[in-house]
Design a protein around this nucleic acid. Structure first.
Length: 126
RNA sequence: ACAGUUAAUCGGUCUAUCGCUGAGGGCCUCGGAAGAAAAACAUGCGUGUUUUAAUCCCGCUCUUUGAGGAAAGUCCGGGCAGCACAGAGCACCAUAGCGGUUAACGGCCGUCAGGCAGUAAUGUUUGGUCCCUGCUACAGAGACGAGGUCGCGUUCGGCAACCCCAAAAGGGAAAAACGGAAACGCGUUAGGUGAAACGAGCACACGAUGGGCUGCAAUUCCAAGUAAACCGGCGUUUGAGCGUUGCUCGCGUGAGUCGGAGGGUAGGAAGCGUUAGAUUAAUGAUAGACGCCCGGAAGGGUACAGAACCCGGCUUAUAGAUUAACUGUUUUU
């Protein structure tokens, strides 16, 4: 199911700080992606957790920030199955991902969707 | 009909497919976590094992709920929370004709007077007081001190005569008329200048009234973690520091306190129960249709803007639409 419930959102000040400190980064315009791979087994599975962020310094109005956040979240929700791939060794690969919007202009949904797909494929390959 | 003024209201709708927040119901142990109680067995007891399995959370499913007129700025007022609450003075901030309204307000309503804008409807702005302090351009002899004219008084000149004492030398006491490019005080008012000539006006001044301080990152609880020692300053009745919430006095308290270096924590819940109630933060995305506006058409546009403890106001941002009252111009009767 293409859902986006509460437990797949990244929260907690410590974990976010750890992600930005230790995570790998790359750019998929107009997004900057930071991610960290978590390996878990079938017995105690972890969830892939995602953080979506539009900085206040670029978008002064809360309406625009909310809108961009929703667009990014929606795009992730519809394409999160890219990350799920079968494994032979019984391990599960999960991720903590942060999407930072970094362009000064508001881009339409199509552009953001394309960028999210690109980013997720890149993460899944590694 | 057009243009305008004031007040009020609204500020997209529907369908499909996915998805989120909160609330409620149902389903499944044949998915996970926790596991009261009962029964059986083992046992001397403690206890252990097994079975049944209420209930709760996740899960699945159904129903339902979910941004604004400004949610914004955080500018006032109130609730709420914590600290404080003998007193006096100073400072600071706010208010401002009059009447009403309100839980309260610096808001709102009515109304009076003056200024400004407008043909008008109307809008906008000012409104305590001059005792103290300060300011009042240019012109003018002089601008809030006073000065000119005239009169009076005092000082000064006139001034040591007369008078008294004394043998004398000398000493004491002491006017008045009068005088003026003199000084001071009191009174007096003409003309000119000027917005204003002693009358005043104004605020930076003064008086009146009100204001304890800090704010939900308040505050409370749980969990987790703890640190004592060291170095330096000031102190222990010759009173440090703290409280009195900007300062001083006064009052209260009475042995620590301030700085350095170093170390620890920074999770959760309540606050926030609200016909929204989140906590890296829900209220959405995509597609289509319909409205409305611009345009001959193609086509384009559809604002400002997102709750974070809650109310009452103010201010600012807003595409456009509607209603009512009023004003002006033009036309027709």
């Amino acid at each position: 199911m293409k859902t986006f419930p509460k437990h797949s959102r990244l929260c907690g000040q410590e974990r976010i700080a750890a992600l930005y400190k230790n995570g790998k980064r790359f750019t998929a315009w107009p997004l900057r992606v930071t991610y960290q791979t978590l390996i878990s087994n079938e017995a105690s599975p972890l969830d892939t957790q995602v953080l979506v962020w539009a900085p206040k310094s670029l978008f002064k109005r809360a309406v625009k920030r909310n809108h961009l956040r929703r667009l990014m979240r929606e795009a992730y929700r519809l394409h999160q199955d890219i990350l799920i791939h079968p494994t032979d060794d019984g391990l599960r690969y999960n991720y903590m991902i942060a999407f930072n919007y970094m362009d000064k202009e508001e881009q339409p949904y199509a552009v953001i969707e394309k960028a999210i797909c690109k980013a997720l494929k890149k993460i899944a390959e590694k």
